[in-house]
Design a protein around this nucleic acid. Structure first.
Length: 280
DNA sequence: CACACAACCTGTCAGC
DNA sequence: TGCTGACAGGTTGTGT
């Protein structure tokens, strides 16, 4: 479910409710998610104050007092829902329940259990297995045409697969890769190595723009609903190619009946949506 | 090393 | 209505 913009939205929602509060009670309802949860997981969290909440790629970092960090990933189906307490009976797939000292309740629900949680000493965070190899943040200053070009150089995989690789750039998922390639007019089949210079110069702003717009849409979701549940919010109505097989792509002037509109193909086992006329 | 692909687990939806 | 198969926004591990 969640790519970078959704995780960012969840982090902002959680920060609003959790920062400055204390974890009065933590309930762990199973021993593992994608990976085994750390020993004494709930006990180590209980009583801690939440100092700040940050995002790295698609990871949520909940910094607690004593230098402990709760590192969480929502996987495909995970969500964090904030509501007023008291905690009711847990629903199906409610795996972890955080009760705050002001009565708010945060529930981590994950049907597919591709999500994960770990506890990390803040000082060890940069060397954590899940974070150490991540590429640059696409919305950060360290991400630019030169950096992207260099990271794509010599790679013989399609640009679609390269952009999904979290070590190339961190936080993009299937949807936003499709959208960014469409916006920059680059075919998803093009070899990564050939996306340098002028093509990277178009791709970088396309990535930044689509993510920024999606976060803004998520922000509006945050305002309208108290929940931070990782849903795609209003932005899903703005997809230009994703999930639009056979339809006209945004701003399309060609005859869809004749051209077939947006095409769907499968690359490394995942759906790619693109416009073969606008993307080369 | 770089790449493709299966696997993880559950829910949903289209088609019969 | 019920069954089956395809598919789902992510990441890791294995095999070539």
């Amino acid at each position: 479910m969640p790519e970078l913009p959704e995780v960012e939205t969840v982090c902002r929602g959680l920060a609003l409710k959790m920062e400055g509060r204390r974890l009065a009670r933590v309930t762990q309802r199973r021993a593992d998610l994608r990976f085994p949860l750390p020993k004494r997981f709930a006990e180590r969290l209980t009583g801690r104050a939440v100092e700040r909440i940050r995002r790295r790629a698609k990871y949520i970092l909940i910094h607690l007092d004593g230098g402990l960090v709760l590192l969480a990933h929502l996987g495909m189906s995970g969500s964090m829902v904030v509501r007023e307490g008291p905690a009711g009976p847990p629903g199906p797939h409610d795996h972890i329940i955080f009760e705050l000292d002001d009565g708010h309740v945060i529930t981590f629900n994950d049907a597919r259990r591709f999500g994960s949680m770990d506890l990390v000493e803040e000082a060890h965070l940069p060397r954590h297995k899940l974070l150490a190899e991540l590429g640059p943040e696409p919305l950060g200053n360290e991400f630019n045409e030169a950096v992207l070009s260099e990271r794509l150089a010599g790679r013989s995989t399609p640009i679609k697969a390269a952009l999904l690789d979290q070590t190339v750039v961190a936080g993009l998922g299937n949807i936003y890769v499709c959208e960014a390639l469409f916006r920059s007019g680059i075919s998803p089949r093009r070899l990564a190595a050939s996306v340098a210079g002028a093509r990277s110069a178009k791709l970088v702003p396309a990535i930044r723009d689509v993510l920024t717009e999606a976060i803004a849409a998520g922000g509006s979701t945050l305002r309208d609903y108290v929940q931070s549940n990782g849903e795609l919010g209003y932005f899903q109505h703005t997809f230009r190619v994703y999930g639009r097989e056979g339809e006209a792509c945004a701003g399309c002037t060609c005859d869809v009946a004749k051209t077939g509109g947006v095409q769907r193909l499968v690359q490394s086992g995942r759906s790619t949506f693109h416009c073969p006329r606008k993307q080369r």
